[in-house]
């Protein structure tokens, strides 16, 4: 299991701004180690965010997203105290879900 994500969800007017920092290697599969062997690709492929059971955002990523990915998005319809859940899945089947409270 990977390290937890850092999630900030803040209500500004009627818009919830969500900022997520995930802890992940995001190995591209094109780099080589010291002995010249290719380091296998290991990166997040899908990210989805839900609020009250509705998917408010989803993303598909390739390996060219930077290490320890940062993501920011905004959605309407949230209110203070609501929970926002973020889930990612990587190409090796690893998965992690974290949630944050809208402030």
């Amino acid at each position: 299991m990977a390290d937890p994500m850092k999630i900030r969800a803040a209500l500004q007017g009627d818009v919830v701004e969500v900022r997520v920092l995930m802890a992940h290697e995001m190995e591209t599969g094109t780099r080589k180690d010291a002995s010249g062997k290719v380091i296998p690709a290991h990166f997040i492929q899908t990210v989805s965010a839900t609020h009250n059971g509705n998917t408010v955002f989803s993303a598909h990523w390739g390996p060219a997203i930077a290490k320890n990915p940062f993501l920011q998005f905004k959605f309407k319809g949230g209110s203070k105290g609501d929970k926002v859940q973020i889930t990612w899945t990587d190409n090796q089947g690893d998965k992690r879900t974290d949630e944050a409270t809208i402030s």
Binding site: S58, G62, P63, A64, I65, K74
Partner: peptide, 27 residues
Amino acid sequence: IEKNPNTVTAVFDIPPGTLPEVQTRVK
């Protein structure tokens, strides 16, 4: 990203109610 080994870096799905604004970091 035109000159990366693989062009497509990210695809974001924007359902109704979500603002068409995203920000992320790429290689």
